[in-house]
């Protein structure tokens, strides 16, 4: 069952690579949020108690409803176009995606073969790594601030997927704290996308490069000396 969910998660991410519309992407993230929640419950079948339920439900709430809603809200309020503007074409993205999946699987299997730790199924771990790389890839290749936020969410999902195996070993408060952090983080990002939109009339982060290091004129030139006089 976990394996099925892992595959679904991986596929959904690959789908993100090929998707050209922001709204569809948000829906994929919603799906991932619910999938992760279910996977969490499944993984902790033997330890189901109030705290596992709370974590699962709040995670689904956060990742499946609150954050996507926030993103949609931002999307509507800002004057951004609804299409994704990638640096890397969708086809190429898909190809790279497959490569990344391969790499993650290699790392995960390589590790699980030699490792004594069996808490996390290799399939899930490879998917988790894949999601992390996917998230980074999305941030790297998509121009808009909002798509970068989506990338961040995917990345977080990947991390969360890794955490599935250890839910009962992690204190409840910490889990909640992690979720709070993610929520506040995305919330802040949302606010900033608003501000960016207002200040720049666009949310393209590739035009977001005023903070640079120019090369100052040479400091100790004799010409410079004379001009200073």
């Amino acid at each position: 069952m976990i394996n099925t969910i892992s595959i679904l998660l991986a596929l959904s991410s690959l789908f993100l690579f090929g998707s050209s519309r922001i709204r569809i992407s948000i829906r994929v993230v919603i799906a991932q949020g619910f999938l992760l929640g279910i996977a969490f419950l499944l993984h902790n079948e033997e330890h189901l108690n109030s705290s596992t339920w709370t974590i699962a439900i709040s995670s689904m709430l956060l990742k499946g409803i609150v954050l996507p809603w926030l993103l949609t809200f931002v999307l509507h309020r800002s004057r951004a176009k609804l299409e994704i503007e990638p640096y890397v074409g969708f086809g190429t993205s898909l190809f790279i995606g497959v490569l990344l999946l391969g790499f993650s699987t290699y790392v995960a299997w390589n590790l699980s073969l030699t490792s004594t730790v069996r808490a996390i199924p290799p399939a899930l771990f490879s998917t988790a790594l894949f999601l992390i790389f996917c998230g980074m890839f999305l941030i790297v290749t998509r121009k808009k601030a909002i798509t970068q936020t989506i990338g961040y969410l995917v990345l977080e999902n990947g991390v969360f997927a890794t955490g599935l195996g250890i839910g009962h070993e992690f204190p409840f408060i910490v889990e909640m704290g992690v979720m709070l952090d993610i929520f506040v983080g995305v919330f802040l990002m949302g606010i900033m996308i608003f501000r960016i939109d207002k200040a720049f009339d666009h949310t393209d982060t590739h035009r977001f490069n005023t903070l640079l290091d120019e090369i100052a004129p040479e400091h100790n030139d004799s010409e410079d000396m004379e001009s200073a006089q």
Binding site: V117, V159, G165, T205, F208, L211
Partner: peptide, 30 residues
């Protein structure tokens, strides 16, 4: 604004990797 955006984005990404590390530690300690 630009600085803050870069700050939050890059730090969040970085720290997410750290979270992965914490989870892995929990796994290793399992």
């Amino acid at each position: 604004l630009e600085a803050a955006w870069k700050y939050i984005l890059l730090c969040s990404v970085g720290i997410a990797v750290a979270l992965l590390g914490i989870f892995s530690l929990a796994l290793a300690a399992g």
